[in-house]
Nucleic acid binder design. Sequence first.
DNA 1: TTCTTTCCCTAGCGGTCGCTACAGAAAGAC
DNA 2: GTCTTTCTGTAGCGACCGCTAGGGAAAGAA
Lengths: 251, 251
Amino acid sequence: MMGMTAKPRGRPRSFDREAALQRATEVFWQHGYETTSIADLTRAMGIGAPSLYAAFGDKRTLFEEVVASYVGRYGSFVGRAMAEEPTARDAIARTLREAAAEYTAPGRPRGCLVISAAVNYPESSAEVADGLCRRRAANLRAFESRIRFDIAAGLLPPGTDAAALTAFTGAVMQGMSQLSRDGASREDLEAVAETAMRAWPGPPAGHSPAGPRPGDDGAGTAGGTADGRAEKADGKAEKTGEGGGKREKKT
Amino acid sequence: MMGMTAKPRGRPRSFDREAALQRATEVFWQHGYETTSIADLTRAMGIGAPSLYAAFGDKRTLFEEVVASYVGRYGSFVGRAMAEEPTARDAIARTLREAAAEYTAPGRPRGCLVISAAVNYPESSAEVADGLCRRRAANLRAFESRIRFDIAAGLLPPGTDAAALTAFTGAVMQGMSQLSRDGASREDLEAVAETAMRAWPGPPAGHSPAGPRPGDDGAGTAGGTADGRAEKADGKAEKTGEGGGKREKKT
DNA sequence: TTCTTTCCCTAGCGGTCGCTACAGAAAGAC
DNA sequence: GTCTTTCTGTAGCGACCGCTAGGGAAAGAA
């Protein structure tokens, strides 16, 4: 990769492209793709519309860059849990536990952008919604292959229904994202995660605790972070005025 | 005023108001509130915009009537399960099992309108989203009071965390709705429901199976001897072989 | 300086949004 | 028939949508 940044010739950009992308991420995260207007974006990013189009292309291209940035910055915890934990059970337990914190982190919109940014959309935005749907499906595939690996390795009972466990995990994660948007607290979501793990099958009788770990079979990488950026946004995203939308919990 | 419909004076309406409301329900169900336009509605309802405004008021009023109609028509299974099942566990197991069928019923939009119709919205539609959020919260409150009743009645262990079980149930239901929108089949969702019930606590040791039921003041609903206990969620649900209506699953 | 390149801002394009004024059409009441 | 009432279709309101032309401003290169 010889992509050294050549010295720009003309007038340099007068705003921080990365910061503007971060602001755009928050707006899309909060309101979704279709229900965010260019005016909303330019207001949040502090730039004019022509600057936005020159720097990021059209609305859809900007959204795709936002999603890629989001996945690397806020979604990497899933891939890390999958890579670092010794068993599928440990990996998913940690994923759910950390999701409880991520989905309710103060100073950011609630929930998961990949889950919630295109639930409602007109026909004209079907392709955008489809892209997010594929990312969710890739996550589920990563879960499932991890579970199947543990079944084959004897870490889970042979009769374990990998597809059912995968769908269940996906439902719990998406449900946690939605609950957080409705105002559920971090403790609420941690209770959901803990309760969900009670549905997990125990290890088969007479298992040997040390087993091989699933490495890289080229299958879908969890969390979409193919590049494996280890940066994690821990809870202090510098106070962007509002943060999440609803924060009071409906009684 | 004994509710006799007074004979209308002028020119009668030339379309079926109930059928038009049903069409509007499907459009809002599919695309959500903000991302459905008046033109989408008039096209689906087969009427002109002035007829729509004369019969239903503005867009928001129409949506509220749509939600009320939807809840009565498609959301009643939750209340029925809560009222007819002898225990909270049975009620929620049945709710989840029936949700698997409702959320994937052929010929209708997937998932639940109350859950998904206002996930994405601009500030201007915050009140509409808030209304749906309150309905979801009311559902959770009904779940929780039902669970607390069973704890008090000795049908659940005294240490049962009612709030955790409620949040977990809500997360699973919302997650099932989302998964169905992503193309999950009825069987997928039934597996989710069955797996979720494995997280449910068993009855306390040495319980007495006969107990009063909540919301059952004198009006004995059918056959309520508390014989059905813990095996509701174990048996495979009946495979109603609905053949068609296949929706392609994103891969 | 002068030229070239690139950025930023003003203004506005065509299109769609939710919504409605207006006039004709269709019914009951007389 | 004529009058009154109400519905229906056309046509269009002001506002906003995503997006962009065009001119001046600000940088490096000559």
